[in-house]
Design a protein around this nucleic acid. Structure first.
Lengths: 226, 226
DNA sequence: AGTTATGGATAGTGGCGCTCTCTGCTATCT
DNA sequence: AGATAGCAGAGAGCGCCACTATCCATAACT
């Protein structure tokens, strides 16, 4: 297919496709003549992946470039995944006070839960930054809920891994995990919002009506564990 | 205190503070003379909140402005929280195919779990967009893990609510929830990364070393039938 | 007295994600 | 054969954003 068709197929404007090719997000088409190139469905897939990462995951062009480089690189699956995650995760810029203590709390959590993580992992730092920032508000210690978050993440990770194991062909595993990570982030944060709204509606939304039924259904609700 | 001290206290450059005042993120100091103003710890708090939202939460200046407007506005707690969440949540731009079906799946999930959410909530749309985008990759249906995510979010919401209930004074509830939402997002996504890395290390990381203790604690090794 | 800090304002910076334009060509329709 | 449309490649430009730099007159400290 030619570039116009690729554009129609994916909803991405032609100049934008050219831009992505220039920026090394998308491989160039196969030249059939000095000014004709043909594209196939690998380009369609790649383009959809790019737009998914950018639009849903909010990644920048350069972050997408890194992710794709990791996806395409050969190597041990575990290391490729690590590289992809590093590319997905935006670098931490904030430098709040009290980082050492926060970092210690995170490492302690990892030890407590038996997670096998290298201590210098960027996400460890990210959590520590958030913890340290939180402390600057005097709204209590976030550490109190860390275990709940960790337990939730364990269940999520199990579901994610089972899902990937169910569906990914071997050569598509990394791409599958990347998509799942980025889109899963979006789903997870949005769903947390909904859970908050539901809880808030039950807790604070009764100001006109009587506070009654359902007010404590939250903690006992219809659990359907994986 | 004067602006220089405020700057030193918070680590925000003086011109940046002025910029925030111009942009209505921060109230101006109380003028003690035509070119002298004094700031107090409400400014320190507010400034830290701004930087937390921007640096850790990745919010834009205009989003922060909206959040702060919601935080400051009087009204029923539940509505204020809704406004704050709308401000926190970046608008969805992508328009993938298959939205109707995805939206139906989300609403079905809400019904199934008994969540009390208005169907037009932005986060519902956000989840639907992610679902629809996911389908464009042929990596299986994300709906399979939605329930696991929802169950995890219920637990998280319970922990969050309990935390807020434990610590927030009445007039600071909204601020507390906003901080918890934004920083909690950061913590949650980072922790999900760690859980993934842990699971991936157990599942794929044994390629050079012998598969030893812990290697089959996650899902039982390379079976995972489709 | 002199250095430094301040409020207020305007203009400028660098990065980002496109988008537009241009040139020279080719493919296809009539 | 001529007209029309599309394409490749490359560069310039645009609009937004979060700051940042500079300027000025005044006030504060030492």
């Amino acid at each position: 297919m030619r570039i116009g068709e690729l554009s129609r197929e994916t909803g991405v404007a032609v100049p934008t496709i050219k831009y992505y090719v220039r920026e090394k997000l998308l491989p160039a088409g196969r030249l059939t003549s000095p000014n004709q190139a043909s594209y196939d469905d690998t380009h369609v897939r790649r383009l959809r992946l790019i737009r998914g990462l950018m639009d849903v995951g909010g990644l920048s062009v350069s972050a997408v470039r890194e992710v794709l480089a990791a996806v395409d690189s050969p190597g041990p699956v575990h290391e490729v995944l690590g590289a992809a995650q590093d590319a997905i995760t935006p670098p931490v810029t904030a430098r709040p006070a009290g980082m050492e203590e926060a970092r210690r709390a995170v490492l302690e959590l990892l030890r407590r839960r038996g997670w096998c993580i290298e201590p210098a992992h960027p996400s460890v730092e990210a959590i520590a930054v958030a913890l340290a920032a939180f402390r600057g508000f005097g709204h209590g210690e976030f550490e109190e809920v860390l275990d709940a978050y960790a337990a939730a993440c364990e269940r999520i990770a199990v579901a994610d891994l089972a899902f990937v194991g169910r569906h990914a062909e071997v050569d598509g595993i990394v791409e599958s995990v990347v998509i799942g990570t980025v889109l899963g982030d979006a789903v997870l944060t949005a769903m947390r919002r909904l859970a908050h709204m539901d809880a808030s509606a039950r807790r604070y939304g009764e100001e006109g009506r009587e506070a009654g039924e359902g007010a404590r259904e939250v903690s006992g609700g219809p659990d359907t564990p994986s």
